[in-house]
Design a protein around this nucleic acid. Structure first.
Lengths: 144, 144
DNA sequence: GCAATAATGAGATTGGATCTTGTTATTGTC
DNA sequence: GACAATAACAAGATCCAATCTCATTATTGC
């Protein structure tokens, strides 16, 4: 993701927090800035906890709280990859993607697909569902 | 799912276990029969543990082992619904479906869609991935 | 600057899942 | 059918992500 998109994300996250009547404590600020500056794709909460404690700030409880808050505010995607660890990534409104897991290496790649998105929209309409979110996860091994 | 499909599943599960060189201990047998006879859609491991201990059999460890084994043999789907609890359901080779979560009620419905499946196949091919499994989860609220 | 109160930190706690170890049961062989 | 080899099991300890508690600290409107 481009640097300016990250800064935009940070500004938007702060704006939404403020307009939700939330104060800007040091943990919230620090976690948001970490995610905006150094956030990798699919960080686990523990990754964030480690990164924060490496710079001597933010307790585990706070990190979990902030991640949860950002998720509720729609600023983070939460992906449950199946290993019992929730992973987060910045929600860039300009880029909607899904994930494919290489089961041989554990490597995760992202992809986008308009046909897939269209069919998901059609399914939701058929089910009478106002879609709030959706996940698609592919798992497989490299084809020979 | 029809009763005969369940019996077919049970027979196939036993066959695969046997051909994988595994013995048919009482825990394996009991868990498989429970799943085949009374298995609901999306049972958690704990649900199975409770059901087994209600009939005075199978330790928690055994239940987890058997579920894991059945999953590895391709006889169970494992769905991580995002609440930290893995859920399982019988893998009926004749019926491949996905899940939609009603976020207002927590209710889970299933759906199938050929267009969706086709696009997923196409994506996997594009990524050079030999697909072993894939999940699609929709979340939303009932449209007014 | 002050008071109200939201946010935080540290550690305890929860709960799903896994691991360990001694025991039991299954299976091929005789 | 009995026996030995060994796979499978049971019970409980343990692990670890996530949540909760509550006293302390920091932020914000006034």
């Amino acid at each position: 993701m481009a640097d300016d998109a990250r800064e935009k994300w940070l500004a938007e996250a702060k704006r939404r927090m403020r307009s939700a009547g939330m104060r800007s404590g040091q943990s919230r600020t620090a976690v948001m800035e970490l995610l905006a500056r150094d956030g990798r794709c699919l960080m686990s909460a523990q990754d964030v906890v480690d990164a924060m404690s490496a710079r001597g700030a933010s307790s585990r409880a706070s990190v979990y709280r902030v991640l949860d808050t950002l998720h509720e505010l729609g600023m983070l995607h939460r992906i449950d990859s199946g290993d019992g660890v929730a992973r987060f990534e910045i929600a860039d409104p300009d880029e909607h993607h899904h994930h494919a897991v290489n089961e041989a290496t554990g490597e995760i790649t992202t992809f986008t697909d308009p046909v897939l998105e269209a069919s998901i929209k059609a399914i939701a309409a058929r089910l009478g569902l106002e879609l709030t979110s959706h996940d698609v996860i592919l798992r497989g091994t490299p084809a020979r």
